[in-house]
Design a protein around this nucleic acid. Structure first.
Lengths: 152, 152
DNA sequence: TATTGTTATACTCTATAACTATA
DNA sequence: TATAGTTATAGAGTATAACAATA
């Protein structure tokens, strides 16, 4: 008697849900705003913190430095951010949104929130809080799991 | 005053959690069993249904026919499945696990369940059921959302 | 020596379209 | 005409390593 069924296996269900959501959202960002998801993440963080080094962005987005570097270059080419050397550390680049970048953010924000609202339309407020919290716990557990196995 | 913060934005949290879990699991499958996730999914389904056409596998795994075709070819090369033409429909290929494939499945199953257990160690039984159900609702909502927008 | 960021490379996943063979 | 499956191709995303500049 087997205890494993793919359709109820949590990693599978998580992957299906995440792929479905990513696909819908990525389509919206690329078609309507010509942004990749990495680029959108940088813009969202830069709108929160105003000014950050790429290393800060690595920490804030959990993307690696190569992905951040590529996305930042794209944004700079499109004049959505400005980059300049940090005054105190000549290796670091400080990045901030340009006026154009801020204007784009203001156009995206309501769209993003509307997508989230439609995605969660069938969820109660409490359910959403629970889901969000559980996703955090899951990511943490997966990180620990990868670390433990890497130590083998 | 802005209402959007990336760290609390649900699509972002979902993506982070899913990527962390996928990364940990994919590492385990490839290192220990030399299987990609698509290949593992086919094996898991074929263990449940015994015999299926590739089209059946497309429906069961939600992967597209190209991904199923590639994974099935890989599994056949490694003698984990056997493929033969369907008796009634000459276009269709019927696939089943070989004895070797079943033996591999029996080795993977406890590992997969153990990974799931460790991932969910901090979750109560009821929480797991809720999470699983909410992920299903989320995938469904995302599918509807993509369909609606595609109609624009 | 270590760190910030860039470049090159490669591998996986996904998507599309063109193709074949059957229906 | 439509469907099952294959092949080719290209686009994201991600990972690694080698490198330049600076600390």
């Amino acid at each position: 008697m087997s205890k494993l069924r793919l359709s109820t296996f949590l990693p599978y269900r998580l992957s299906i849900a995440s792929n479905a959501v990513s696909k819908a959202i990525a389509a919206a960002y690329t078609e309507r705003f010509r942004l990749s998801i990495p680029e959108w993440r940088l813009i969202a963080i830069l709108h929160e913190v105003e000014d950050a080094t790429q290393q800060d962005l690595v920490r804030a987005t959990l993307m690696d430095k190569v992905a951040v570097s590529r996305a930042a270059q794209m944004l700079e080419e499109n004049r959505l951010v400005a980059r300049r050397q940090d005054a105190r550390d000549g290796r670091a680049l400080r990045i901030r949104l340009s006026e154009r970048g801020r204007a784009l953010y203001r156009r995206i924000e309501p769209t993003a929130l509307e997508y989230e609202r439609r995605l969660l339309a069938a969820f109660g407020k409490e359910e959403i809080a629970q889901l969000s919290e559980m996703l955090g716990r899951l990511a943490e557990a997966a990180g620990r799991l990868a670390d433990e196995d890497a130590a083998d």
